[in-house]
């Protein structure tokens, strides 16, 4: 019997696959990967950047491709 609470999904993060609990939010996932909430980075899901204020409410879906990009400033 399947259990909704225990279901896992698979997402990719910077090209690497991760199995995570269904219902996990982007902010929690990033924290688990060692990214601080106030870290200077831009995070995209399926090549679309997510506004910072939405990290806590953005639920990850099976197959999501997550990329973290560090903005650079040099010139």
């Amino acid at each position: 019997m399947s259990c909704q609470q225990c279901a896992t999904i698979v997402v990719s993060f910077n090209g690497e696959s991760f199995a995570i609990h269904q219902g996990m939010m982007l902010a929690d996932f990033l924290q688990g990967r060692g990214y601080a909430a106030d870290q200077r980075m831009a995070c995209a899901i399926n090549t679309q950047f997510v506004p910072k204020g939405q990290y806590v409410s953005r639920e990850l879906q099976n197959g999501d491709r997550i990329d973290v990009v560090a903005p650079v400033q040099g010139g």
Partner: peptide, 8 residues
């Protein structure tokens, strides 16, 4: 990557 306006 696509970028949308940040509401904040």
């Amino acid at each position: 990557f696509k970028l949308t306006q940040d509401p904040d």
